[in-house]
Each structure stands twice: as C-alpha cells, then as structure tokens.
C-alpha cells in the first residue's frame, strides 16, 4: 500500500492502490510514524500509484500539511492523476502551495 524512501532529508511516500476512509487511516499512521522519527525537511506524497481516491485523500493531505508544519518541515504532493486533481481542486488545497 505504501513504500517509503529517505534521501537528502526528503521522505518520499509512494502511495499505491486505493485511498478511502479505510486505507487513509493506515497510510496516515505509517507516514506520521516515519515523519516523527526522521523529522525530514520535506515530506513528499507520491500519488503515481493511486488508482482511486475519494475525499478522504484531501483529509490525508491536509493532515500531513499540518503535521509537517508542526515538525518544521514542508509537504509536497506529486504525480496525481486528473481525477485526483479534480477532488483536490474542490477542496482549496491549491492555496496551500503543496501541489507540484
């Protein structure tokens, strides 16, 4: 469901499969655990392997944005499909400057 890579103070989480309320809770716990331990300057969420996402994905991104602010780092969201972008756009996430 998720693979991570830590390099040059950047923690990248490659999310795979479907993001819904059920899977978002598991992704959140895994990513937050690693971010708290490593305290990276950037957390990158890579959506390249995401085949489905509902609005739970927005909560996931917003929550990690807050988490990284608390840790003194930044969040980047990359490789999302057009379908995923449609849901991000509805949420006002663009205003946070995390979408790449």
């Amino acid at each position: 469901m998720i693979e991570t890579e830590y390099q040059n103070n950047v923690l990248t989480a490659y999310i795979r499969g479907e993001i819904d309320h059920d899977s978002a809770a598991k992704i959140r716990s895994r990513v937050d655990g690693m971010a708290q331990e490593l305290k990276p300057h950037t957390l990158r969420l890579d959506f390249g392997g995401v085949s489905f996402m509902d609005s739970s994905g927005v909560g996931l991104v917003m929550g990690r944005y807050r988490q990284m602010k608390l840790l003194g780092g930044a969040l980047q969201v990359t490789n999302y499909s057009d379908n995923i972008y449609r849901i991000f756009a509805m949420s006002g996430l663009e205003g946070l400057g995390v979408l790449r």
């Binding site: 609005s55 849901i87 509805m90 949420s91 006002g92």
Partner: peptide, 21 residues
Amino acid sequence: PLFTTAADEERAGLGFAVMQS
C-alpha cells in the same frame, strides 16, 4: 462544502460536494 462534524478525524467536509459534482 467544507462543513464537517469530524474535523479531528481529518474529514474534509467534501462528501456531498463530490457527490453533486
């Protein structure tokens, strides 16, 4: 849109907005 009663559970308040869209 964005109204939620479960913000602490990271619910975005977009469920009905997504359904309508």
